[in-house]
Amino acid sequence: MVSYLIFLLVVGGIYALLAQSLCLAWGVTGLVNLGLAGFFAIGAYASATLTKWGGVPVPLGLVAALVAGAVAGFVVCVSTLRLRDDYLAIVTLGFAEAVRVIASNEIWLTGGTDGISGIPAGMPRDWGQRFHIISLVIVTILLGLVWLALRRLVASPWGRALRAVREDQIVAAVAGKRVTRLKAEAFAIACAIAALAGALYGHYTSYIAPEIFQPLITIYVFLAVTAGGNGRPTGAAIGAYILIAFLEATRFAAEIVPGVSAVQAAALREASVGIALILLLRFRQRGLFPELNQKAPA
């Protein structure tokens, strides 16, 4: 039971990092990233290949993941930033699929559909419970750092400019904000955070494969961020833990629903994710932790 909870807290922390990413891109800046799973994958592969085959220490792998995520994010968003925001949504959706196809087929680089197993964690895995507790501490600390940094960024003049862009690009541009540049910066940073989450996932579980990075993960994170409140890092992080609790709770709920087959139970579980997202968007769009009215600059 305890190891199950620790495991869920680690996974929850990784999802919370993804939620921080989406909070910055979507909640604060208004850029919808439907390719979150793709950036998650980029980070996972960057760090896993370098540490496993390149002999690079794990912390450097994490840095490499951040860089790879930022570069990928910039490349993906740069062609669409001047367009309506829904174009970015379509491009990112395609990006995630493209990453999965490339990861499956470029065997020399990614190990192909076999994936990469035995990814080093930077500490011995046979420590048992200790391994998981230390992992939990590391993931939680990193999440805390990202959360703190994001809170400060959001409160800074840069963050206010991003919100101005989100509310009305034209007004923001007239007010002298460099809209495209601001959007590119925010999106690249957000993608770097998602990539960091991917790297941590790989090091913690020791295994990554293209099949992990499916679009469903992106929907999960949207659910998390919507539940918590998309404009605030705190809300997004808590939303991620709620998400994991929800996903696991549906597992137990499915066991007690009478008269349905295993497939039907599985279908109900997946449908409940979609229904929860629809209901939240409709009735509690600002989440549990709504964005506060902005304080005057200090």
Binding site: Q214, A265, A266, E270
Partner: peptide, 8 residues
């Protein structure tokens, strides 16, 4: 349980 054909 359902593995959703997904390692995660």
């Amino acid at each position: 349980e359902d593995d959703q054909t997904n390692p995660e």
